[in-house]
């Protein structure tokens, strides 16, 4: 680290107070709204419409959850969200990491492919989703019960990230690693699988988190491609639109749980567990 900078010779007490107030404001503005969602989820519906609202509801109730459970096949929705996110992540990693490794080997052509990934990232989902639906319909992938069409759509978002991350990670790898493996008798593919890939474990974990969350949170494609069996984000939008904010909030809380778990889990692995040491020091 660089050490702390000091911009002035003395610390003005007035500046300190402003700083503290600012931090407090930041804390409130950023953490209060998510907590309000939890509060809204636990508020009974008839109390939710009485103005003015208070910070804490008069009574806590799980009515929103029970009414959601009885009217919506929740298990199907959550399974779909999870399944699509996992499938997208696995496909993106399986396709993206070998591609990133190969792109590094191919020098100039490789840079072109990495740039292509950047361009793909710029195209917005809604632009592609509309004609993509027309393509998916004859294939029977539109509104598929297992979300297969949606997995393909999410790949367009996740794959560029996986390729770019892999490209950056493999490019920093010293060539000696693979070279020594090959000297010792490995074929190319073995060198990749046994030496190169494990050396970028940190990037793999990072890409996993990133692509999983991108798919889990994705809204635009899911809104257009899945109608009958929906993932959680469009479902939240549906309930918000109909003014059922308590139910929408319950779904929102449910959405947060796996996201937090995935991050914490893989963060832990990256710093302490089996994946530790996979991240290269800059």
């Amino acid at each position: 680290m660089n050490g702390f900078p000091t911009l002035s010779a003395r610390r003005a007490p007035r500046g300190w107070l402003i700083s503290a107030l600012g931090l407090a404001l930041l804390l409130i503005v950023n953490t209060l709204p998510p907590l309000l969602v939890v509060r809204q989820a636990l508020t009974p519906p008839d109390e939710a419409v009485q103005m003015p609202l208070r910070l804490l509801p008069e009574s806590f109730s799980l009515q929103n959850l029970t009414s959601l459970w009885t009217t919506e096949p929740l298990l199907d929705r959550v399974t779909l969200s999870l399944g699509v996110a996992l499938a997208t992540t696995l496909l993106a990693l399986v396709m993206g990491f070998p591609a990133g490794w190969a792109a590094v080997r191919l020098a100039r052509a490789g840079r072109t492919i990495a740039s292509l990934s950047l361009i793909s990232r710029v195209l917005p989902p809604i632009v592609i989703a509309i004609p993509l639906t027309a393509i998916l319909i004859p294939l029977g992938l539109y509104d598929h019960p297992l979300g297969l069409g949606l997995v393909l759509a999410h790949l367009t978002i996740g794959l560029p990230f996986a390729v770019l991350l892999a490209y950056a990670a493999f490019r920093d790898l010293p060539p000696e690693l693979e070279e020594s493996a090959i000297v010792n008798g490995c074929g190319t593919f073995e060198a990749f699988w046994r030496v190169a890939l494990p050396s970028v474990r940190g990037a793999v974990a990072g890409a996993f988190i990133l692509v999983f969350l991108l798919s889990w949170d994705e809204f635009a494609y899911a809104l257009l491609i899945q109608l009958t069996n929906r993932t959680l984000p469009p479902l939240i939008y549906y309930y918000t639109n109909y003014g059922e904010l308590g139910v929408a909030s319950t779904l929102a809380v449910m959405m947060l749980v796996p996201a937090v778990l995935v991050i914490a889990f893989l963060q832990g692995l990256m710093t302490r567990g089996p994946l530790a040491g996979g991240v290269r020091d800059t």
Partner: peptide, 24 residues
């Protein structure tokens, strides 16, 4: 083989992004 591996995502982008754009 390496070229194929690297080109696979490009084919993916073509099919899933640029072809739909053309159809649009």
């Amino acid at each position: 083989l390496v070229f194929l591996l690297a080109a696979a995502p490009a084919v993916g982008y073509l099919l899933l992004q640029f072809w739909p754009l053309g159809r649009a």
